[in-house]
């Protein structure tokens, strides 16, 4: 199969997956109990007809199939609808939080990728050494703690106890910037944002680096047993040449796919991290929208998250097909 045909096939497959995922989200969320007007229905002091008139105004009194087709029609026109509660276009609401998520996740993604692959290669190549043993131990111990707990631990230690113990530095506990940063110079404002980013990013990076290193380590250990590595060694190539020219590149292939798939997981993890650190990202927005039954906002956030995940996967698969032509015919 040619490269273009392969890309087209993967693209069609991604679009079908996307359509199914979006449809599932729409129906599952709409048939669940509760609707957005619940926030008005419990108040004894407001007009008792308000939930009904609000439901009518928001089009929620229409049959579900009709709501679905309206949703699809709008989606095809690039319109994600209005957030019921924010009273703004969903894109605008998400646009307020997406930069913070991209800053946090983008930084984590890049650092995870580079450090994870390098560290995985190092410990695989020195399998059985003290470095490897330390890595395996650290990975297992760290995985035993939920991300949420690690976040709280960081806040307690680096934000609270460092302050209590009069350490020269301690980290901010809340948000992504100082509320009084309007008094700062531009450089100070940038520094303030980075200072607030430090703790959540570190928690995400430690978790991500260990995971990707573990994956890379496993791949490289397998590759090390391949005949062509033995051949290379018999040919008298140096260990570095064997590692980078033969082992590293082959072990990297599954990692590329994994990187694409990890986008979704990273966003999922960001919900927890953003919640713990009060970081104003899209994950947190999605959580609040879910609790308030803000259907359009949930769908909008999901469409973007699912889109990013599928895009990551698609790019990974195309890259894979490009690097390893055998995959195109699989």
């Amino acid at each position: 199969m040619g490269l273009w045909k392969y890309i087209l096939k993967r693209l069609i497959f991604a679009l079908v997956t996307y359509f199914v995922a979006v449809t599932l989200v729409f129906f599952i969320y709409h048939v669940m109990q509760g609707d957005p007007t619940y926030i008005y229905s419990g108040n004894v002091h407001i007009d008792e007809d308000i939930p009904d008139s609000t439901r009518e105004r928001w089009g929620l009194d229409e049959p579900l199939w009709k709501q679905y087709f309206i949703f699809l029609r709008n989606l095809l026109q690039g319109d994600l609808g209005y957030s019921f509660f924010k009273g703004k276009p969903v894109m605008e609401v998400i646009g307020e939080t997406l930069p913070w998520t991209l800053l946090l996740l983008g930084s984590a993604f890049i650092i995870n990728g580079i450090l994870g692959i390098l560290l995985g290669s190092l410990v695989a190549w020195r399998r059985g050494s003290k470095v490897d043993a330390t890595f395996v131990l650290t990975y297992n111990v760290y995985n035993a703690f939920p991300l949420f707990f690690v976040g709280m631990l960081f806040i307690a230690l680096f934000g609270y106890y460092f302050y209590i113990w009069d350490f020269p530095i301690y980290f901010p506990l809340l948000g992504a910037q100082n509320p009084l940063s309007y008094r700062f110079t531009f450089i100070q404002q940038v520094g303030d944002v980075l200072w607030h980013l430090a703790m959540p990013l570190t928690v995400l990076v430690i978790s991500g680096v260990l995971g990707w290193s573990w994956f890379m380590r496993g791949n490289l250990i397998n590759v090390k047993t391949e005949d062509y590595i033995q051949t290379a060694r018999a040919k008298g190539l140096s260990e570095n040449q064997i590692l980078f020219k033969h082992g590293f590149r082959n072990a990297l292939l599954p990692v590329i796919t994994s990187i694409g798939m990890s986008v979704g997981g990273l966003i999922g993890g960001s919900v927890l991290i953003e919640s713990v650190f009060n970081y104003p990202g899209t994950g947190l927005l999605l959580l609040n929208a879910l609790l308030e039954n803000d259907y359009n906002l949930v769908q909008g956030a999901f469409i973007i998250i699912a889109g990013l995940t599928l895009l990551g996967l698609l790019i990974a698969e195309i890259l894979y097909g490009f690097i390893d032509p055998r995959v195109r015919n699989a």
Partner: peptide, 22 residues
């Protein structure tokens, strides 16, 4: 002169902020 309302989801984080004057 000013009042800041800080959004704090986790009570523990809020407690640490209270203790440190935040």
């Amino acid at each position: 002169a000013e009042k800041v309302v800080q959004i704090v989801r986790e009570t523990e984080a809020g407690y640490y902020a209270l203790s440190t004057g935040g």
